[in-house]
């Protein structure tokens, strides 16, 4: 790796200030599982890394029935999936966390870093001066695009690689963002951006802004949730596609629900139309089939990835059947 300075701020304010200097590139550094890969591949060549790990107050998990779950951004993925409240109440999040990466990476990677990770597109990671790196062409359009997006793409066709982000979207999570100016809260659905809005970033964070906490609202007793990840290897792989759902059920009726999809778009994806149609839906396999057929209607697959559409639709149907079975 090329040389960089290692800055050790004592608090968020110092960290934010270090990151917002325009005269040299200083990048926020937490678990490092993504950033060190980017540096090794020379996608990023920062002058300094700002180590967030020694900042106090960012690695706790709190749960209360009124407030729900509050997760410090530095909480490790393995730490979060082992938390009692996550295991007992937020199955969708637990499953997504356990299917992320490998045991070692889950001991290293943080939840905040997981949400802010860069795309895995092989042109972006490889030796290609692509659009996202300031070039003038997306090599995926006419290249190997089996794993690229089917919806929300253009002019760049990445998919967002996070599993937990898809689960958190289905849970209506929001994040706290801190900077020298203060803090603000942003719903996770408004946190991620599409290439058409900003080709160089996957989220709204400006230099100097830091995600400090992730908040998940409490779920009612009658809520069930789950996550299905489709990957080509049996373990340790990014999602080809994934589906998350939370459903509030009363008897034979879904009171309301949320579905979210990974591996299909440049950001964790959800469709308001689908969530609306879940409201009041009777629990019946035919209903789930009809609903699933409506998913990703606006998709425009590239020449190698149309297979993702039936895959996602079938996985949603399977998940709905599973979650309503008992």
């Amino acid at each position: 790796m090329r040389y960089f300075d290692y800055i050790q701020p004592e608090n968020i304010k110092q960290a934010g200030e270090s990151a917002s200097h325009g005269w040299r590139k200083a990048l926020l550094y937490a678990g490092g599982t993504d950033l060190l890969g980017l540096i090794k591949n020379e996608v990023e060549s920062p002058a300094a890394l700002i180590n967030l790990k020694a900042i106090p107050g960012l690695n706790g998990i709190e749960y209360s029935e009124r407030e729900g779950l509050t997760i410090g951004a530095l909480v490790k993925l393995s730490q979060l999936s082992a938390h009692e409240a996550v295991r007992e109440r937020y199955s969708v999040l637990e499953q997504a966390l356990k299917e992320t990466a490998s045991p070692q990476l889950r001991n290293m990677g943080t939840i905040g870093g997981n949400l802010c990770q860069r795309p895995r597109c092989w042109y972006f990671r490889g030796d290609f001066h692509c659009l996202r790196k300031g070039g003038d062409i997306c090599y995926a359009v006419d290249g190997e695009n089996k794993y690229h997006c089917v919806v929300g793409g253009g002019p760049c066709f990445i998919v967002h690689p996070s599993d937990p982000a898809v689960a958190l979207l289905a849970l209506d999570a929001w994040v706290t963002i801190a900077s020298a100016k203060g803090t603000k809260r942003v719903a996770l659905k408004d946190f991620f951006v599409l290439p058409e809005d900003d080709i160089y970033r996957e989220n709204i964070l400006q230099p100097g802004e830091i995600v400090t906490h992730i908040h998940v609202p409490p779920l009612s007793e009658k809520t069930v949730s789950g996550y299905i990840k489709f990957r080509e290897r049996g373990a340790w792989d990014f999602a080809v596609v994934s589906v998350a759902a939370t459903l509030r059920i009363n008897g034979n009726t879904i009171i309301d629900g949320k579905a979210a999809f990974g591996g299909v778009a440049p950001k964790p994806w959800q469709e308001e139309k689908i969530n609306q149609r879940l409201k009041g839906l009777s629990v019946k396999t035919e209903n789930f089939e009809l609903l699933s057929a409506e998913v990703l209607k606006e998709a425009e697959p590239l020449n190698q990835n149309a297979f993702k559409l039936p895959l996602v639709r079938n996985l949603l149907k399977r998940l709905l059947v599973q979650l309503t079975a008992s």
Partner: peptide
């Protein structure tokens, strides 16, 4: 690259890829 596991060591008792942390 933190992908194969050959460099696994325990850090405070937990398995990590030593090639992929500073």
């Amino acid at each position: 690259h933190g992908e194969c596991g050959a460099c696994t060591v325990l850090l405070d008792g937990e398995a990590v890829y030593s090639c992929h942390i500073l």
